[in-house]
Computed example of a mutant assay.
Amino acid sequence: MKRIVLPFFLFFMLFSCKDNKDVQQIKTSDTIENTVVEKVLPTDEAVPEDADFKNDFDILLATSYRTWENNNPATSLTKNWMDLYEKNDKFYLGKADFKLESGYDECAGDSTKIINSSTKTLLFMDLPELKSGEIKSLKIDKNKIWPKEKITLVFNGVEYFLRAEGEVLASQKVINDGGKEEIFQNVKNYKLYISTKNTPEKLLLQEASFNDTFVELLFAGDIDGDSKLDFIFRANRDYEEERVILFLSSKASPENSVKKVAEIAVQFDC
């Protein structure tokens, strides 16, 4: 859905290299009607709210940040941070290559710092132990998993199942950022579950409501080099917010597929 992007405001919530031809693409049904699934009782329904979540390490987006109480998070970015970026429809990891630009936010009436990356950055991560180079990733043909839908992702011969629940309040046709028409739904009490044949279904993320936004899968691939899927989701709760959540498999316990390790939320309201 196209929107006018206003200046940004940051707050943090309390919170290797094989050809992509070896990776199978996402399998999804063609329509919402064909993706209706029976409700499955998950083995672990209870997941704490994000209010107590703390990042395992910091992440940043290549964007503009407002200064808050004489502190600007953009200044924490260094050349030792890792840059997950896209080039020619493939993803790579490399050391952050960027410049900081000073600015002024007329809406907020305060100074800003803008991170100008030399690459098409998806996410900066303060995790220097990651290995540089091309990483395996899936081509994402369906980035929104609406309530009563289920998709299967196949990676290194393992099937990952993502299943969604929630209440659809309304549906409408919209033109997305790519200029294509799609169905957009107003959803509340959204829950997204993940499982594999070897791990029980667990609650991956949940949102009570959205304001002209929805959860989107931005990336599925092997960031941490353990031959298992990692995920990056955009989970904006409001149209004046940019919120990204990172899940890594190497940090997960044996009974889980992935673990939420970092989150960043940027407000750009007036």
Rank of each mutant, 00 (worst) to 15 (best):
K2C: 09
K2W: 10
R3E: 15
V5T: 12
P7Q: 05
C17H: 10
K18Y: 06
D19M: 01
I26L: 12
P42I: 02
E45W: 02
E45V: 07
P48V: 03
A51D: 14
D52M: 08
K54A: 08
K54Y: 03
D56R: 14
D56S: 13
I59P: 11
L61G: 14
A74Q: 08
D83T: 00
K90C: 00
F91Q: 00
Y92W: 00
K95F: 12
A96M: 03
F98S: 10
S102R: 08
G103H: 03
Y104V: 01
C107D: 02
K113R: 11
K113G: 05
N116Q: 09
S118D: 08
L122T: 05
L122Q: 04
F124P: 00
P128C: 04
G133R: 01
K136V: 01
I140T: 15
D141P: 02
K150D: 07
I151F: 12
F155H: 06
G157P: 00
A164N: 05
L169E: 08
K173F: 03
K180L: 08
I183G: 13
I183K: 15
N186A: 07
P200Q: 06
E201R: 08
E201N: 04
E201S: 04
L203G: 02
L204D: 04
L204C: 10
L205W: 02
E207W: 00
F210P: 01
N211G: 12
V215H: 08
L217F: 07
D222M: 05
G225H: 04
L229W: 00
I232N: 13
R234K: 06
N236A: 08
E241V: 13
V244F: 09
V244E: 07
V244P: 05
I245L: 10
S249Y: 02
K251T: 07
E255D: 15
K259I: 08
Q267H: 07
